[in-house]
Design a protein around this nucleic acid. Structure first.
Lengths: 247, 247
DNA sequence: TTCAATTGCTGATGCAGTAAACAGTTTAGG
DNA sequence: CCTAAACTGTTTACTGCATCAGCAATTGAA
């Protein structure tokens, strides 16, 4: 029970992974393929960037190549795998943290900033990663590796570094979500109406009401820097503590 | 452009919100309605709990009441709004933080623990909240209010408290995601295969490889406590700093 | 040259959400 | 009391989706 996502994940796992890693022997006989998984993924990304994730259907993607929908299935097992490829596609290139110097805090901050940039540049990424299971391809692993590398000087255990990584990713995703909601003007109406309701039920939400009165949720500082600093101050405290313990 | 989610969110926003808040004047004339939005939402939740979010279709939900799919549209504008109701339904009841005493750290920790319990009890919640825009109903606002209230003793600004809230939610959601991936046995195969690939390309992922060798990502402590402590240590540092500034 | 492998196509299937029109039920207002 | 309006649930139908099955054309290996 609790078969959370798509129930039909029974398709050959090996094939999907080989696809993600680009490790499939191409055929010798037969007509030359006119497409590649990568090109298909690129087209899908362009479509999603322009019209949102819902606009990405096998038909529409195929249409950009003047090809029938079923042709895509010669390159990609199904739509889910296509989404995986899309994700890998926009994560291409491991983040470059060298601009942040040697300081691990600066490096983690830079990592978060670049990650956020990706999310903001592709508004569908949030939905896409939530839709699919945690199926990490090489590019995604590259980002993970970069973050863990930045955290190595902290001296934390692998598990601890992983937790910190999760904290930072969570922050980035939340900020991305937030900035998506923010400039969606059709949500203004919604916020206005909810605001009215909130006033009417102010007694049920005392802290929230007070917070709104206090200037509300308009960020006064760079939210990313704030969040990362908060996390990393916590990490620093952890380092100090374990250092004190071990000495 | 970048019309992230469903393109057809043009349906009357006022009606959806009235539905969420239960603020709709019920009719006098006509046959007595045999259903209520709340009962429909409950049935949908049961379905999602048992068979996953994908199993929640208007048809299946309607079938549990021996009613045609279209009958549901007399109570709910569309599927999106139904999902919103499902979310509100399982968040019913504001979290009770009194067991944690007066300490704000303990209260925030307790909030996170209860929140995580909800996510883990309803494996579809992650996907559902990611699918929908940030459309908070009263129950969701209640959780937000409780968190903000717990953070009031910190003396942080409203915006800062909101950021901390986002950090904690991000943490909880990541942990939920993680524990979902963990006990999904059909992902074992996937992890095994990816592990092999990773070994073969160890040079591309030095930090990751080393981390795996170091005992990997098996959590050695309570991940929730670790994350919350990390965040709250950061908050404490922030408090100390601003206290020093103002004095 | 022959044949097996491979590509891309057409057509069909099943399920999803939902719009429209309709038939039956209840109550407010004359 | 009676009619008209409001309301409920149904049937039918439309659109779009992912995907399966089978076919025709192409191409390298034998």
């Amino acid at each position: 029970m609790a078969r959370n996502q798509k129930a039909k994940e029974t398709r050959d796992a090996g094939a999907s992974i080989a696809l993600l890693w680009g490790e499939q022997d191409q055929p010798t006989r037969g007509p030359k393929p006119s497409l590649t998984p990568a090109r298909i993924a690129q087209a899908a990304v362009a479509l999603a960037d322009a019209e949102g994730l819902d606009a990405v259907s096998m038909n529409k993607v195929a249409a950009t190549f003047d090809v029938s929908a079923m042709a895509l299935y010669r390159y990609v097992p199904g739509k889910g795998e296509l989404v995986d490829l899309m994700i890998e596609s926009i994560l291409a290139g491991r983040p470059d943290l060298s601009v942040a110097g040697e300081d691990w805090r600066a490096q983690v901050t830079e990592w978060a900033r670049q990650c956020l940039r990706v999310y903001q540049g592709h508004s569908w990424l949030l939905a896409a990663t939530a839709m699919r299971r945690q199926a990490m391809g090489p590019q995604q692993l590259g980002w993970l590796d970069a973050a863990l590398a930045a955290l190595e000087p902290t001296g934390l255990t692998a598990a601890q570094r992983h937790h910190v990584f999760l904290l930072v990713v969570g922050l980035v995703r939340n900020l991305a979500q937030q900035s998506l909601d923010f400039d969606a003007e059709r949500d203004r109406e919604w916020n206005r109406l909810t605001g009215e309701l909130l006033e009417r039920h102010a007694d049920r939400f005392p802290a929230l009401t007070k917070a709104l009165a206090d200037g509300g949720f308009v960020p006064d500082t760079d939210p990313l820097a704030f969040g990362v600093d908060c996390i990393l101050d916590g990490v620093q405290a952890l380092i100090d503590r374990s250092g004190a313990t071990s000495s």
